[in-house]
Design a protein around this nucleic acid. Structure first.
Length: 271
DNA sequence: CAACGGACCTGCCTGC
DNA sequence: TGCAGGCAGGTCCGTT
């Protein structure tokens, strides 16, 4: 799935096509997503005007005059802006049809994504209320990371992938950020020094920014709003590079499983 | 509370 | 060739 850079790339791609448009209708072909698409949502949203498209963590929030659509891409989801008449392909689960003749089409083979709705403040929605700070915002720093890690015995990798610690860091960028910060992924979070947490916060910010500049990472399914892949895969230092030489020191990259997720690291560069 | 395993789902790859 | 098993970018939920 899409982690923060892929979701933000999607947001930037769809936003100009959506803002100011009227929703003609919501066409749901498959309501069985991570949570069922709410019954009656189509009737509720039809005719509403879209005011803006926001991202919080890996959620996309489509603000409209009727309320806010809450979207998540799950592991394999993507959103594209297409002509409303474009031929439907497998796993095209819903279209948000706009008055421009185009539609926002959601495709998700694994159906881990979702389409929900709230008429209230979306940031107060149960799925969003407990999220940690945005990593590219000013209220995210190493001091905060360090304070939260006190007494934690879980691995530093699992710790930074916990959305309550920091929002938007998934499996790829967790490994990549730890490589950049020189920290072994299996180290207990509570044993990482304050100085190294500062380096880690900076590394998270740097890797997400670099990935964003490259349009994200495409491993399998991800495409942006225009159907194009992201090119950060070419620049991954460790992710899915087990056995290959570290680009910095030549040591073979190692793979291990932490919290049921594959993790990659360089024994030469990471302590 | 923190930590862990299971659950949700399809597609693709490997090995027997 | 066919089939079982494992794995994949997320994250909620129930249990220890």
């Amino acid at each position: 799935m899409p982690e923060l850079p892929e979701v933000e790339t999607t947001r930037r791609g769809i936003e100009p096509w959506l803002t100011g448009r009227r929703i003609e209708r919501l066409l749901v072909r498959e309501r069985r997503l991570r949570w069922p698409v709410p019954r009656g949502l189509a009737a509720r949203i039809a005719g509403a005007t879209i005011s803006r498209v926001e991202r919080r963590a890996k959620y996309l929030l489509v603000h409209t005059s009727a309320g806010t659509l809450i979207l998540h891409l799950g592991m394999s989801g993507s959103l594209r802006v297409l002509a409303a008449s474009a031929p439907v392909r497998g796993h095209d689960h819903f279209d948000l049809v706009l008055d421009s003749g185009r539609c926002l089409r959601f495709n998700d083979p694994r159906r881990f994504g979702c389409l929900l709705f709230t008429a209230d403040d979306p940031l107060a929605h149960p799925l969003l209320a407990e999220l940690g700070p945005e990593p590219l915002s000013a209220d995210f720093d190493g001091k905060r990371l360090w304070q939260r890690a006190r007494g934690r015995r879980a691995s530093i990798k699992a710790f930074i992938m916990d959305a309550r610690t920091v929002a938007g860091v998934g499996n790829i960028y967790a490994s990549e950020a730890l490589f950049r910060a020189g920290i072994r992924p299996g180290l207990a979070a509570g044993r990482v020094s304050r100085a190294r947490m500062q380096a880690l916060a900076a590394a998270i910010r740097a890797v997400l920014t670099a990935a964003l500049d490259a349009g994200g990472t495409t491993l399998r399914d991800y495409v942006d709003a225009a159907g194009a892949p992201g090119y950060f895969r070419l620049r991954l230092a460790v992710y899915e590079r087990a056995g290959q030489p570290c680009r910095k020191c030549g040591t073979p990259i190692r793979q291990l499983v932490l919290g049921q997720r594959s993790s990659y690291w360089c024994p030469g560069c990471q302590r």
